[in-house]
Amino acid sequence: MVRSLDGERPWALGLMSGTSLDGIDAALIRSDGLRQVTMGASFSLPYEPEMRRRLRSVLGGRGPVEEVGRQLTLRHAEAVRRLLAEAAVAPEEVRVIGFHGHTILHRPQEGRTWQIGDGALLAAETGIDVVADLRGNDVALGGEGAPLVPLYQAALAAELERPLAVVNIGGVANVAWIGPGDLAGEDEVIAFDTGPGNALVNDWVEQHGGEPLDRNGALAAAGRVDEGLLARLLDNSYFERVPPKSLDRDDFSALPAAGLSLEDGATTLTAFTAATIARAAGHFPAPVRRWLITGGGRHNPTLMAMLAERLGVPVEPVEAVGWQGDVLEAQAFAYLALRSLAGLPLTLPTTTGVSRPASGGLLHPAPEGAHA
Rank of each mutant, 00 (worst) to 15 (best):
A79H: 10
Q331R: 13
L105N: 01
G228Y: 03
E319R: 15
Y238D: 09
G61A: 13
G40L: 11
T347A: 12
E93I: 00
S20I: 06
T38R: 15
V94G: 13
T276N: 04
A330I: 03
N198S: 15
T273R: 07
A366G: 02
V149K: 00
A274C: 04
E125N: 13
L156I: 06
V166H: 00
F99L: 05
I24M: 05
A222V: 10
G361C: 04
E67K: 15
G18R: 14
E161N: 13
D264N: 05
Q115V: 13
R82K: 14
P357E: 09
D193V: 07
G14C: 12
T350R: 13
A155D: 07
G217N: 12
A281C: 11
D118F: 15
A366N: 02
G7S: 13
V354F: 02
G98S: 01
A334K: 10
Y238S: 12
L55K: 05
A88E: 09
R279G: 04
Q36D: 15
G61M: 11
V205N: 04
L344P: 01
G101C: 09
E8K: 15
S20G: 08
G63C: 08
G69L: 07
T350Q: 11
A173S: 15
G361I: 04
Q71C: 10
E316T: 03
L83A: 12
G7A: 15
Q109N: 12
L292K: 09
T113Y: 01
Q331Y: 08
R241I: 07
A26M: 07
I190H: 14
G23H: 03
E78D: 11
A132H: 14
L234D: 06
G171L: 09
P108F: 00
